[in-house]
Amino acid sequence: MENKIPDFLLERTSSETYARVRGKLKTSFIEKSIYHLADVIRTGYVQWETASRNDFLQKVDARVKVLFLLFYAVIISLKRDLVSESLIGSFIFLLAVISRLDIIVLYRRVIFWSFIFGFLIAFPSAFNIITQGEIIVPVARFSKSYSFWIYHVPQEIGITRQGMLGVLMLTSRVMNSLALSFLVLSTTSLPEIVRALKVLRVPDSFLMIIALSYKYIFIFARTVEDLYLAKKSRLAVQASNAEARRWIAGRIAFIFRKTRLRCEEIFKAMLSRGFADTVRIYRFRRLTALDWSTGICFFIIGILFLWI
């Protein structure tokens, strides 16, 4: 489905116009921060947009989805073979398709992070220096083996079958966990997820803290972005790194002061609306037939995954 947010708003423009000079400030700290902040704001809006559609998982109650997320995250962490992980991965993919999510966007993100956190980090462990076993890809051979303190380098170095299986297992587990998280995140807005955490008996005040801070993270992220844009627009000559660090320290302190002030304002607003020391999250709507049937299906399929 076409995203409702216009494409030009999702585009990332680059305006890195300053030259690299040794010992002098590059604008990269400004660019990186603006990019980082824009990404935070963008992620929040895109998530809200995909979650507000009227497709399969979007229609399911957030409590069912939160329990599904936790149950399946545990199942993924418990499975010890590639076949089970592949089946779980296919099930998550199917759910993403019937929820009409943008599969390319979703899986590009999943594959990228799985490659970094799963494959790339774990790959060196496939060698027999880390994981002993049957060598399937010999890489190097020395005249003798070497030992240094607690470390041992064998005469022949290579990728072992056991090591490679371990890497693939870890990568598929990371990939399934990420796909599962992104699936639920793309079909549920954070305020709904936070409210749904009540089924896990998380105290209302803690949920309120999460919901409130989430809202203000976006408000302050805009403020910080404006600070950087203002700095960038005023930067006619290069500044030293030390000067940049002093400026950043000042801006962080400014944000700190702003959060303290906002805390007072929010508290006064809460009092003016009759807040009397009891945080109470509103009651949930009744679960529909779709919620129950989806929840039961997820539970049965989960048990099957645990059993196989």
Partner: peptide, 18 residues
């Protein structure tokens, strides 16, 4: 509640400064 929420927002934003 507002105190901790704002502290959390500040904690998040500190990581935004490169």
């Amino acid at each position: 509640v507002p105190y901790l929420a704002m502290a959390a927002a500040f904690s998040f934003l500190i990581q935004m400064f490169n």
